[in-house]
C-alpha cells in the first residue's frame, strides 16, 4: 500500500498578513508546511512504522516553484521516502488539484489537509478525488489500516462516524489524525540528502476562479473596559448596548 501526502506551503500561522500591490506581501514571511498536511504526514509515518506495517512507502507532493523545496525536504527529513514537486505557481484550487492528479493517480491512499491556511481554500482534496475518480472521505480525524481495509473516523455535527472505504481513496484530514507534527531528527536531515525529489512539469489547465484584490478587515473599535468590581455593568452592556443576550 502506497501513501501520498499532499503538502501545501503556507505562511506560518503566526504571520501577520500584509497586502501590498494587491498580493500577499511575502517580506518576512516564514513559509511552513500547512499544519493539517503536516499532521497527515505524521500519521502516514506512524502507519509506516507500525509493527503490522502494510505501508510500502510514503511519498509527498507539492505544487510550487523551487522556493517550495525547503518545505518538501523537511518532509523527507521527517521520513517520507520520496518527493514530487510539480513545477508551477499554484493559483486556484482546481488548478492545484489538477496538477496533483498527475501524481496522485498512482497511489492507494492520498492525504490532504482539510484546509490550507492560505487562500486556496478547503477544496483541493475533494477536487482531486473527483478528478481521479477515487473514493473520498472528508473531515477525517483518525486513520487505521486493518488488513486491507481502511477505517477512518470523521467528525459529524455532535459526534463522529466510523467509515470504511475502498481503495484508492483521497482522505481530507483534520485535527486529531495525529497528535503533534514531528520534528525532523538529525539522522533524517542527513538522509534527506539522498532521497529523490522529482520535479514534474505542470499540465496546462484553466483557473476556475481568480483573486481580483485583497482587503484587510476593518480595525476593531476600542475595547470598552468594565471595572472588575462592577460585573453587573457588563451584563447591562451585553443586554442593552450590544443586544446579544
Amino acid at each position: 500500500m502506497k501513501i501520498l501526502v499532499c503538502l501545501g506551503n503556507v505562511p506560518d500561522t503566526t504571520t501577520k498578513i500584509k497586502i501590498s500591490d494587491n498580493k500577499l506581501d511575502a517580506t518576512g514571511i516564514q513559509w511552513i508546511i500547512n499544519p493539517w498536511d503536516e499532521l497527515a504526514l505524521t500519521r502516514a509515518m506512524e502507519l509506516k512504522e507500525d509493527a503490522n506495517n502494510l505501508v510500502d512507502g510514503v511519498s509527498v507532493v507539492s505544487v510550487g516553484l523551487a522556493s517550495a523545496e525547503p518545505t518538501i525536504r523537511k518532509a523527507l527529513a521527517i521520513g517520507a521516502d520520496e518527493a514530487f514537486r510539480i513545477d508551477c505557481e499554484p493559483t486556484d484550487a482546481f488548478f492545484t488539484a489538477t496538477q496533483l492528479s498527475l501524481v496522485a493517480k498512482d497511489f492507494d491512499i492520498v492525504l490532504t489537509g482539510i484546509e490550507s491556511s492560505d487562500y486556496n481554500g478547503i477544496s483541493v482534496g475533494g477536487m482531486l478525488a473527483e478528478i481521479i475518480g477515487s473514493a473520498s472521505v472528508s473531515a477525517v480525524s483518525s486513520l487505521n489500516i486493518d488488513a486491507d481495509k481502511i477505517i477512518v473516523s470523521r467528525e459529524i455535527d455532535g459526534g463522529k462516524e466510523t467509515v470504511s472505504t475502498q481503495l484508492p481513496v483521497v482522505l481530507t484530514v483534520q485535527k486529531g489524525i495525529a497528535k503533534d507534527p514531528r520534528i525532523p531528527a538529525m539522522r533524517g536531515i542527513m538522509m534527506a540528502r539522498q532521497k529523490p525529489l522529482k520535479v514534474i512539469a505542470a499540465t496546462s489547465t484553466a483557473n476556475l476562479t481568480e483573486i481580483l484584490k485583497f482587503e484587510m478587515p476593518q480595525a476593531k473599535g476600542k475595547c470598552k473596559m468594565v471595572d472588575a468590581e462592577n460585573v453587573a455593568e457588563l451584563v447591562n452592556l451585553l443586554r442593552n448596548e450590544a443586544k446579544v443576550i
Binding site: E69, P70, R73, K74, D180, I183, P184, A185, M186, I189
Partner: peptide, 16 residues
C-alpha cells in the same frame, strides 16, 4: 537549507 532545518528543529522542540 540543512542548517536552517536544524535551527528550526531545535526551535520547534524547545518552543513546543
Amino acid at each position: 537549507e540543512e542548517q536552517l532545518m536544524i535551527r528550526d528543529a531545535a526551535r520547534d522542540y524547545v518552543q513546543r
